[in-house]
């Protein structure tokens, strides 16, 4: 957890704990609300199809716990295509996230620390592009890529994910604040070249913002649905979001080919959210600080 607030036990604080019951109740109700879907998913990932449909109750375990059976089913169904989807999601998120972050760091530093003709104009253009609805770009990009025969390849998902104007904005704001000009000048006087100055002096100071932008852009790519849905038709290239969406529409149309897909969808959804939850929990000291960058300026 963060160390932002150290609980100070003073007489006044103790007197106020009684009054804190109402806010705690408020939070308690919200915690229940926000956990309901997760609870449902955990409970129902242990049920087989019969338990899902008939079942004793939607919010509690059925008589037989079939968790491991469902897991095995998930990873073997259709030649283990689910694992492929997870791998694809990871590939797109890592390559797209790392690539777009690297580009954003360089550009943010360039905007913050160099004066040149056209800088303000290009930065204004960039800010304007934050407001371009990204999904409005999906169909145009699809048509463009189709002409270049790039659709239905991994690049169709990765290349557009490299565009992250908001990341550049965050990096510029942060670099402008956290990297003192005097330090850069000192490094230059000592004879370091511009790129060495950037890599060895500026980059370490920008680390919290780098982690935040990296995490945010990886999440955005991992969660993306519209772009891969439009770009890909070979289901071996699907990320897990599009794959589960496919199962969902097949199951609704009763098209699982005799195999009940519903229990696979439930456990597949549960498994797919585990990596991101782990990432968020383990990196929380970075992103909780980093998220304030954009809002405070």
């Amino acid at each position: 957890m963060t160390t932002l607030s150290t609980p100070a036990v003073t007489p006044m604080r103790r007197r106020r704990t009684n009054r804190n019951i109402v806010p705690h109740l408020f939070l308690g109700v919200l915690v229940v609300y926000f956990l309901i879907p997760l609870w449902w998913m955990i409970i129902n990932s242990s049920k087989d199809a019969a338990g899902l449909f008939g079942g004793t109750g939607a919010m509690w375990f059925a008589k037989d716990i079939n968790f491991l059976g469902n897991l095995q089913d998930l990873f073997t169904y259709n030649g283990g295509i689910y694992l492929h989807w997870l791998g694809n999601s990871a590939l797109y998120a890592i390559v797209g996230g790392v690539g777009s972050t690297a580009i954003a760091v360089l550009a943010g530093y360039g905007f913050a620390k160099f004066r040149f003709r056209g800088r303000n104009l290009s930065f204004a253009l960039l800010l304007g592009s934050v407001m371009v609805p990204l999904t409005a770009l999906v169909i145009p990009t699809f048509i463009l890529f189709a002409n270049l025969h790039l659709t239905d390849t991994i690049w169709a998902v990765i290349l557009p994910s490299l565009l992250n104007p908001f990341g550049v904005y965050l990096m510029r704001v942060y670099a402008g604040d956290a990297v003192p000009d005097e330090l850069l000048d000192a490094a230059r006087v000592d004879g370091a070249g511009e790129f060495r100055t950037f890599a060895q002096v500026a980059l370490p100071l920008m680390r919290p913002a780098v982690v935040t932008v990296l995490l945010l852009s990886m999440v955005a790519t991992w969660n993306n649905y519209f772009l891969p849905l439009a770009m890909l038709s070979d289901n071996g290239l699907f990320p897990v979001t599009v794959g589960l969406g496919l199962w969902q529409s097949l199951a609704s149309a009763n098209n699982g080919g005799g195999h009940s897909l519903w229990s696979l969808i439930v456990i597949g959804s549960l498994v797919s959210i585990i990596p991101l939850i782990i990432a968020f929990l383990s990196l929380q000291k970075y992103w909780q600080g980093g998220l304030s960058i954009g809002s405070l300026k």
Partner: peptide, 18 residues
Amino acid sequence: FLPYAIPAVIGAIMWGFL
């Protein structure tokens, strides 16, 4: 904050079930 870490597709599927 947790739902932010859950893809919108998964969130929609879960609420669809509920």
